[in-house]
Each structure stands twice: as structure tokens, then as C-alpha cells.
Design a protein around this nucleic acid. Structure first.
Length: 224
DNA sequence: GCATTAACACGTA
DNA sequence: TACGTGTTAATGC
């Protein structure tokens, strides 16, 4: 539970809650372990609550009927997601998969709705988050078929480094090249090649088990 | 041509 | 030891 507290401390909305609200969130939220590769919550399942990545790395993806899989978003430690399904009170529409051993917080739906009703700051945070996601998906649609592998890796990293969504991501993110492959739909070898091209352009630096981004803005703008 | 898989050597935690 | 990286060769669309 120590880790949950640390994650909450880095969430924008947490310090804006009053003591009673914080106490209830701490009492109601549970943290679950997910093994590497495990489907934490599958499409079609009932939604328990709002999800937060306390530790690890998670992807939100969907498997098409033809067997192909599409990643909609990667969520690093510090990120909260899944508000759409909680708000709409419907079964989960996408798979939530742990890319490595992870710890995921679940805030029960009742608590989530109660926060919306009692905390304007929390509601405002949700608006900002939903707006960021809208921008993310519009940009993804815009570029999906236009960008080559380098562009896809650049966008994927830019998304993971979005400071509004994931404030606790430092300039260096612990992510392996094969995990980036899972997020982008590219092979590990091709990701390796793309990272080196982006590094040569000065957009990032690669290091063992992670990537350091020099400029999120330039990654977003990258179209090569 | 370009990306993928498979395979291998090597470095690091 | 287990995992991540860098590289090459063969294969497929």
C-alpha cells in the first residue's frame, strides 16, 4: 500500500481532495498484481472500477476477428485509465494487458462516481485527461497510415511521455525494445533500428533497458 | 524493397 | 542466471 500512496502523491487530483475524500479513496482502492503478459481485464468483462498503474507497464489493446491485434494506448506507471467504461457503466470494451510484471490499482466504481459528485477538482482532472486522450486518438488516426516505423515509435514514445497523463514519467522511461515492439506492432529488431535513427537525430538517447527523451515536442512533430 | 522471424554473441542487472 | 541489446541470415508480402 506504500506504493499506492506514492503513486497518489504524484497524481494531480490527489492533493486537491479533502481529508475525508482521501481517506475513502485509500480505504476503497485495492492494488492487484499482474504477471508479465497477463490479461488483467478482458474485453466483455464487467468493469470493477477505475484503473491506475502503480508499477510496471500496461497496454490497452483489442484483438480483431482476423487474429491481428491493435494497441490503442500504452500506460506507464503513474497513469490512470479506463474512465470511459466506468462512466458509461458498460462491459469493458478493450483488453488491459500487463507487458511486464505490474501492480494495478482499482478504484471501485462507486468511489469514482462519488469523487465526481463531490470534488470539482477531480472532475476537472477527468476533463483534462479525456481531452488529452481525444487529442491522442485524433493524432493517431491522422498519422496511422502515413507514418513509417520511425514515426510510429516516435509517436508511441511521445504518448508515453505525455506529462498531463503521466506526470510521474521522468525523462528516462524504463521500457525494453521488445515492449516498444508490442506497443507499436513492430518487431524488436525494427524498433531497435528506429530508435537508433531517432537517436541520430537527437530526439532521444537509448540506454540499457530504457529510453531518455530529449524533446517530447520534437517527437510529436516527427514525421519522417 | 521492406519488415518479420530465427538465431547467435555479448553485455548488464 | 535471466534478460536486454546489437547484428546477421533467411523468409514472406
Amino acid at each position: 500500500m506504500q506504493d499506492l500512496k506514492r503513486m497518489l502523491d504524484e497524481s494531480d487530483w490527489w492533493p486537491r481532495l479533502d481529508a475525508g475524500q482521501r481517506a475513502r479513496v485509500l480505504a476503497d482502492t485495492v492494488v492487484r498484481d499482474a504477471a508479465a503478459g497477463q490479461v488483467f481485464s478482458a474485453r466483455g468483462e464487467a468493469v470493477e472500477g477505475w484503473l491506475g498503474v502503480v508499477e510496471g507497464l500496461v497496454k490497452v489493446s483489442i484483438d480483431a476477428a482476423n487474429g491481428r491485434s491493435m494497441t490503442l494506448a500504452g500506460v506507464p506507471a503513474g497513469g490512470w485509465f479506463g474512465e470511459g467504461s466506468v462512466l458509461k457503466d458498460e462491459p469493458r470494451r478493450y483488453d488491459v494487458v500487463a507487458l511486464r510484471r505490474s501492480r494495478i490499482a482499482v478504484m471501485p466504481r462507486q468511489t469514482f462516481h462519488w469523487l465526481i459528485d463531490t470534488s470539482p477538482a477531480f472532475s476537472r482532472f477527468l476533463l483534462v485527461q479525456l481531452n488529452e486522450r481525444l487529442g491522442h486518438f485524433i493524432a493517431a488516426l491522422e498519422h496511422q497510415r502515413l507514418l513509417g516505423p520511425e514515426g510510429r515509435v516516435a509517436r508511441c514514445l511521445a504518448q508515453l511521455f505525455n506529462p498531463r497523463l503521466y506526470p510521474s514519467t521522468r525523462s528516462r522511461l524504463r521500457i525494453s525494445q521488445s515492449e516498444l515492439g508490442l506497443l507499436t506492432g513492430l518487431s524488436r529488431q525494427r524498433v531497435n533500428q528506429a530508435l537508433h535513427k531517432l537517436e541520430a537525430l537527437g530526439l532521444l538517447r537509448t540506454s540499457y533497458g530504457g529510453v531518455t527523451v530529449m524533446s517530447v515536442e520534437r517527437l510529436v512533430a516527427f514525421e519522417g
